[in-house]
Simulated assay, not measured.
Amino acid sequence: MNKPKMIIFDYGQTIVNEKSFDPLRGTSAVLKEAAINPNNVSAEEVQALAYELGRDIGRWGVDAEKQTFLEVHNHVFQTYLYEYFDIEFTKPMAEVERIFLNGACIAEPTKNIVEFLSFLDSKKIRTSVISNISFSGNLLKEHINGLLPSNNFEFIIASSEYIFRKPHKRIFELALRKAKLNASDVWYCGDNAVFDVDGAAASGIFPVWYKGAIEKSNKYTPKSDCLEVNDWNEIIEMLGEL
């Protein structure tokens, strides 16, 4: 096990624990801001179509190993979703998605992540983020910076902005290019066995399976060899010995 020059993190259930994510709650918040809703379409009706669209593009309701490798940006998704119902907004799509996320998501930093990031800074180990997420990169950065204001992430890659989703090698290769590092110099930490652990390993990056905030619905285990941790303090101790 080599001491890394950079550790790249997943977002959800890795650096941030999304304790609750309720799309219906988010859609309800968005509809309150609608300028025109001529048919009085309900949040339930909108969300039912959103689930159908998610299945159509291979994002939701599909086994992790069968999900699409391509990302659809949330602004495009929202445009279809609301124009379908003739719902109009005076706010730009960026603000509509912010309203949705703030309404849907209740989140907090994962246990000891603030201390771990501080430790990495003290050891001159660089950090960054790759997230499979349809929200815009700007909103993801805003959200992370709000929850982890002292972070020193060099870059935050949202799949929405770069076509590819994990576990596709292209998104990992992009991160390596941005970091100007070889795969052997990098660790990747994430909660998802397929997207994060096996995806990183297939790209030659050392994978860390973080299970401290893993969702109960996550039924997969990695096929690749990895470091398994339940608390960030475990890695602090390991890195202190390297």
Rank of each mutant, 00 (worst) to 15 (best):
Y11I: 02
T14L: 06
N17K: 09
K19V: 14
P23E: 15
G26Y: 06
S28E: 15
A29E: 11
A29T: 07
V30E: 07
A35S: 12
A35D: 14
N37Q: 12
A43P: 12
V46K: 09
Q47S: 14
L49T: 12
G54F: 06
R55Y: 12
I57Q: 06
R59C: 08
K66P: 00
Q67M: 14
L70Q: 04
N74I: 11
T79L: 13
M93T: 10
E95A: 09
E95K: 11
E97R: 06
R98K: 14
R98Y: 05
R98S: 05
N102D: 10
E108L: 03
E108K: 10
P109L: 06
T110C: 09
I113A: 01
I113F: 01
E115P: 00
F116D: 00
F116L: 03
L117A: 02
S118C: 04
S118Y: 04
S118F: 02
R126D: 07
S128K: 01
I130G: 03
S131H: 04
S131G: 11
S134Y: 03
N138H: 09
N138Y: 07
K141M: 13
I144K: 03
N145K: 14
N145A: 11
P149G: 05
S150K: 14
N151T: 03
N151M: 03
N152M: 04
F153E: 01
E161Y: 02
Y162M: 05
K166N: 07
R170F: 11
I171Q: 03
K178C: 05
A179H: 10
V186I: 09
G190A: 00
D191V: 00
N192V: 00
A193K: 00
F195Y: 07
V197W: 00
V197A: 00
A201P: 00
S203G: 06
G204N: 05
I205L: 03
F206H: 12
P207C: 05
G212M: 08
A213K: 06
K219R: 15
T221C: 15
V229S: 04
V229C: 05
W232T: 04
I236K: 14
